[in-house]
Design a protein around this nucleic acid. Structure first.
Lengths: 359, 359
DNA sequence: CTGAAAGCGCTTACAG
DNA sequence: CTGAAAGCGCTTACAG
């Protein structure tokens, strides 16, 4: 009946014959209000079609938006390309939602539109999930907002939030490959900054130098297992196409490897795509290992030998860390204890993409 | 050098010796400011570490948050379960970002946490993507916020935003199945409200009655092609498990169908899972068709005969519609022309999941 | 248990 | 081309 638009707390308070502060407390519950007073306020609110304090007013007055930004390119790819980031996003979103925070998706800053967006968006904290492009401008900007921030994919802030023993996992995986009798083994590892470092053959040391810390740990595991690669390829993107490029280069060698160890499932998938196209069978003619254990289409029934990274769980862990940072900030004590990072287990999954060589 | 926290427009204006309004206009560009005045303001801002007007202040003053909420369960499932919603989300997010809007993810209201979140979050408009659970409370709430809202999955607002000729596509698909010689054909269609209508055998008319409008159109296509189903199964969820349930029931029949027509790829995948498990070959022993053409794992090299629904494109179309609604609202004219909905083409993709029967 | 008032950080007519 | 002022819708000490 009543005009439902733009009913304010002030109007409700007036109608109920109480002060704005009292009406406010009825809704927030931050102060005890006499039952009958509260009832009067609720009644007036209902009659006027008032559905609770405007999130906007509350945000300005309290300085808290209940919003966390997630800067990512994950959705800007074919879902098939980066399912791990999607899973992480899922975990982040669930944990934030549970804690009463909405998750705002924003792309990295790459042009005027994304720059304007970054400036226009409100948030209390931020997580950046893929630093494939645009991070040169995005990172300093996020820094300038002076809010709690966790950057994943090998940044220090990730290391402080979640512990992953990549090396232990890849060591086990590589050890089993060696036990299967492989001697000509190649490594395909990835870096992020494709502009400076495109796909291409390289040396182990150069790859190690350019790789993010998590990839380094994976390479460490290969070394610890005793792998002496006959060739090393640098994947410039975390995308299937870089895996194809790796296969093309590696299979052209005079004595091609019998097994390629990768640092991401998407690369293993790209390698399989290419190998099949040139008529090779997996794993009989070429073995391959991955990392992540994501669901990928078009593998034709092959189950990858890989390391399981539970993205959803990882997202949850990271979210909990950010929530604690937010809390610490609210306490006004930058030095509040954040506690140790949680550990994400990384079990090996032994599929059927590695052949056991008999001689 | 300077203390970087909590620098306000007012402080910058004072330092530059201009009025707040002038400083504001330097940043928004909504009014012409003398070049040297602007320079003075920018200089002061830089010196004080001011990175532009607070999104919060701007939002309160202008009443616009530059945020669009997307209510969805898509991320709350295994990415493998609902890749179409993910693709739609992708399209929404891209289009919104381009228009300067951030995308806020919130879950449907199912408990106190999600209710609080829904109330706390700020947004100028909203799109709801999956109405699987919690919509009984979520929908009225979204309604009560009085902002432009598009609900997908067979609601009227979707129909007004995007035109899809599902019937034409499924008619073509079913026609080809009939041409392949199939006579014992079953239909597995889906509904949303699993609480009231669980998985189970039903009649065509009952399914039709309970189905959302888009599923109805798909069923229309089957009828138009001349299909006379020997059995009809109702999938109570849009998940692989409901497909398995369908296969279990349908294959138990005395004279089981040679082909099952579904209204979603995930159901086709579930059917394949089950059929394989009981030792049937696809398509030799059982043919199946889908709808959506999403990437699904574990299909073992089978390419589904299905209808291609480009989720990303659909998301973009829906986003553009919402943006137009927002604009219309801003103009203060509820009656502003929104124009016709855009059409999303639905091509048939003929894979290898339907056997050609020779007799 | 309740009120009056300041203030959160801006934008936007209005006025000149 | 620029300023002074009102106001967006709340929350939160402060006071009683």
């Amino acid at each position: 009946m009543a005009e439902h638009r733009h009913v304010t707390l002030a109007a409700v308070a007036k109608a109920a014959g109480v002060a704005k502060s009292t009406a406010s407390h009825v809704f927030t519950g931050k102060r005890v209000v006499a039952p009958e007073t509260a009832e009067r306020v609720r009644h007036a609110a209902a009659a006027m079609g008032y559905t609770g304090p405007s999130a906007l007013g509350r945000a300005l007055a309290s300085g808290r938006t209940q919003l966390i930004a997630v800067v990512t390119h994950a959705l800007l790819e074919d879902p098939d390309t980066d399912p791990l980031s999607l899973a992480i996003l899922d975990g982040l979103q669930r944990e934030f939602a549970q804690a009463g925070y909405g998750t705002v998706l924003i792309p990295p800053i790459t042009d005027d539109a994304s720059r304007d967006l970054a400036h226009a968006v409100l948030y209390d904290g931020v997580v950046s999930v893929r630093r494939m492009v645009g991070f040169e401008e995005t990172n300093p900007y996020l820094e300038s907002r002076h809010v709690p921030w966790i950057a994943l994919d090998g940044y220090m802030t990730e290391e402080a939030a979640v512990v992953m023993d990549d090396a232990k996992a890849t060591e086990e995986l590589a050890r089993r490959v060696l036990e299967a009798g492989h001697e000509r083994i190649a490594i395909a590892g990835y870096t992020f900054s494709v502009e400076e470092l495109p796909d291409g053959l390289t040396t182990f040391d150069e790859l190690y130098e350019a790789a993010p810390t998590n990839v380094r740990r994976r390479l460490d595991g290969f070394v610890r297992a005793g792998v002496e690669p006959v060739a090393v390829f640098r994947c410039g993107t975390v995308a299937r196409s870089s895996g194809e490029a790796a296969a093309r280069a590696l299979l052209e060698m005079e004595e091609p490897p019998t097994c390629i160890l990768t640092t991401a499932d998407v690369h293993a998938a790209g390698i399989i795509d290419y190998a099949r196209r040139v008529g090779l069978r997996i794993p009989e003619d070429l073995s391959v290992t991955g990392f992540d254990a994501v669901t990928l289409g078009g593998l034709g029934g092959i189950e990858l030998c890989t390391v399981v990274q539970d993205g959803m769980q990882k997202g949850r862990i990271v979210a909990r860390r950010l929530l604690r940072m937010l809390e610490a900030e609210r306490e006004g004590r930058g030095g509040l204890e954040l506690g140790d990072p949680e550990e994400l287990p990384l079990p090996v999954r032994w599929g059927d993409s590695v052949a056991v060589l008999t001689r």
